[in-house]
């Protein structure tokens, strides 16, 4: 069975430091101003009864990725039949259909070349058995990466044990980035 890669992020230990964002930029040479990942600070409640949650967000590498289905040339594709969604620059026309198709607004155009770029879950590292750069660099170890089809993986175990949620599952995209709370 092909792997179903997931990221599990513990919002109780994330401090919103931004190291994952910097690690991604460094690892993938993302140009200034553009971001493949970002951090959201969500505050709920009414003063003084407030709770704050930090979420490191990126492409959800959906199992039902609308961006892949919208692509007219097959440039958007699943990597090696896993759920990792990549763009093949040599097939991308820059039509931007995938950007419109993403309910998470997680894709971006890499200027000046003009093809669409996005988070790759660092598949070049995954192919070597390593974690994505953002996960490796997290100073609080709140980020975890692994295969959900492997019951013994750290991500499967965390989702079994802890309360979790994915962002907007009602889109029907079956996102694979989960947040523990």
């Amino acid at each position: 069975m092909p792997a179903r890669y997931a990221m599990v992020i513990d919002t109780r230990t994330c401090i919103g430091c931004g190291d994952c964002v910097v690690a991604c930029k460094t690892e993938n040479n993302v140009p200034a101003g553009l971001n493949r990942d970002w951090i959201v600070e969500a505050t709920r409640g009414r003063y003084p009864n407030l709770t704050t949650e930090f979420r490191s967000e990126r492409c959800n590498h959906c199992s039902h990725a609308t961006c892949v289905y919208a692509c007219p040339t097959g440039a958007s594709h699943y990597w090696q039949n896993t759920n990792i969604v990549l763009v093949e620059p040599g097939k991308c026309t820059g039509c931007k259909a995938c950007i419109a198709a993403c309910p998470y607004d997680a894709r971006l155009i890499m200027h000046p070349q003009g093809y669409v770029d996005k988070c790759t879950f660092c598949h070049h590292r995954v192919a070597r058995g390593q974690d994505p750069a953002c996960v490796s660099s997290c100073p609080t170890h709140c980020m975890h990466f692994g295969d959900l089809n492997d019951a013994n993986s750290i991500v499967s175990q965390l989702l079994d044990r802890r309360k979790s949620r994915a962002l907007k599952p009602e889109t029907g995209n079956q996102p694979n980035v989960f947040y523990l709370s």
């Binding site: 919103g16 931004g18 964002v21 101003g33 553009l34 971001n35 970002w38 951090i39 959201v40 600070e41 969500a42 505050t43 930090f54 931007k96 950007i99 607004d105 894709r107 971006l108 155009i109 200027h111």
Partner: peptide, 12 residues
């Protein structure tokens, strides 16, 4: 919900 890291992806 506030974005607290820089994100200024062109056209997004």
């Amino acid at each position: 919900e506030i974005l607290i890291t820089a994100r200024d992806n062109a056209k997004v």
